[in-house]
Amino acid sequence: MNLTLKVWRQKDAKDPGRFETYPAANILPDMSFLEMLDVVNERLIEEGREPIACDSDCREGICGTCSLVIDGRPHGGHHGTTVCQLHMRHFQDGQTITIEPWRARAFPILRDLVCDRTALDRIIQAGGFVSVNTGGAPDGNALPVSKTDADLSMDAAACIGCGACVAACKNASAMLFVSAKVSHLGLLPQGQPERERRVLNMVKTMDEAGFGNCTVLGSCEAVCPKEVSLSFIARMNRDYGWAILRGNPRRQTGAGGAG
């Protein structure tokens, strides 16, 4: 196959960036999309030009590193697929393919197709955990968990944190990512003690990072490589609503703890 690539090139965060066109010749249908880019990059290096910067690591769809928008579709728009799992057999000979990075204010571009997604880490740091120190955990079977809840929790926990939901959303909203973590922990008994605190803090950090708002478009769900459901957003909205209505139920006093 012979293809034409229209690729976003940007030297660093300050560079305004532009599209450049490269030929991708002699591509095999069995190659993955990233292997096709490897071929193009090899040729660029041989010609003494700088290769296209692009993130990838595990190349089996689980680490969440790869992050390309292909013809306007994050991860190429195939159901439940990351870019690294996308194969060239889905493209036609002679096709022109446009490749862009995730675009969002909260994901500044570092170079070419590579963006900075640490905003997602900051959201987890704000509360996406269960506060248990190592050691002293009760027996794993001490708390039974209904299989339905455990399975639903796993559906949410399957999120790989790639940020495709943000990339696909017309508003660059991170609601699907945040709701997946909130739901994963909120559905398990272990997550209950911090359920309200968690959702309040995570949403606050999400807002501060400059993501947009959810307008229930459903694009996030459609591109999510792990098919995380939009219903988790509803679940988070419910949790947040209760938490904000309840406020701080304790009387504010100056009295401190025991000495």
Binding site: V69, D71, T98, A168, K170, L217, S219
Partner: peptide
């Protein structure tokens, strides 16, 4: 994006 592709969104 160079072209906006509405995905799923009605």
């Amino acid at each position: 994006y160079s072209t906006y592709t509405p995905i799923e969104a009605s």
